[in-house]
């Protein structure tokens, strides 16, 4: 994937993710609806490629207004990835073409790798994750399961241990997928399924769309890395 294709696809996916998030906020009378109407307008500009730089600039300003309004991120990790993708894209637009632009998108790709690796590593070094106890606790009493019926999974120790190890192995080994494009594509498909499962079991739909938006950056980064190494 070329740099410009990766940049454009990321812009489109980010715009779609932001529209989805913002439309949800319009339903809440307690949220500042003007902020989200403006966010939709800027996202549409980015989606259609109309004044993309100004659209991204507007989204960056709105991201600060949202941090002020909610006194931090609204949805923890998914908002953090949203900020990262947005600011990297904005920098890639305004920086002079060449290595600086590539550094901005490359930073996003490296952070995507770290998002899996660090998350997997902190679980792997925790005995409660290795035994499956931590995932049993997630199902037993955390606020995440979308229905009470899912809490019975807390009583399935073998299943939760297998699920825990599957997640840890995928996350920790993810950086190895950079060795080749086909391996990376398989890893990204597994990642997408992982986020889909989180969306279904724990209602984390925003994670799914915003992590997918970061995927083109790593597809470009992997091919660029290959060129640099050869």
């Amino acid at each position: 994937m070329t740099f410009h294709v990766a940049l454009r696809v990321t812009e489109i996916l980010l715009a779609l993710a932001f529209i989805q998030q913002s439309v949800e906020h319009l339903r809440r009378p307690t949220d500042s609806q003007l902020i989200f109407l403006l966010r939709i307008a800027c996202s549409l500009a980015v989606f259609f490629g109309l004044q993309t730089t100004w659209g991204l600039c507007g989204l960056c300003i709105i991201s600060l207004a949202m941090l002020h309004r909610f006194d931090g991120p609204y949805n923890g990790g998914s908002d953090r990835m949203s900020l990262l993708v947005l600011w990297c894209l904005f920098l890639a637009q305004i920086l002079p073409s060449g290595p600086l632009q590539e550094a901005a998108l490359g930073y996003l790709a490296i952070q995507l790798v770290l998002s899996y690796f660090v998350s997997g590593w902190v679980k792997l070094v925790n005995p409660e994750w290795r035994t499956g106890r931590a995932l049993r606790d997630v199902f037993a009493f955390s606020a995440y399961p979308v229905s009470e019926s899912l809490r019975v999974l807390a009583n399935r120790p073998t299943l939760t241990r297998v699920m825990s190890w599957a997640v840890m192995i995928f996350e920790v080994l993810f950086p190895i997928s950079l060795v080749s494009q086909p391996v990376l594509i398989v890893a990204l498909c597994v990642g997408a399924v992982f986020h889909l499962a989180n969306a279904c079991l724990f209602g984390l739909n925003r994670f799914l769309w915003i992590w997918l938006a970061a995927y083109p950056s790593i597809l470009w980064f992997q091919s660029h890395l290959g060129e640099l190494l050869s």
Partner: peptide, 11 residues
């Protein structure tokens, strides 16, 4: 957001 820790569900 710009320098995330990514320590999801550490404990």
């Amino acid at each position: 957001g710009l320098i995330p820790s990514w320590k999801f569900f550490k404990t």
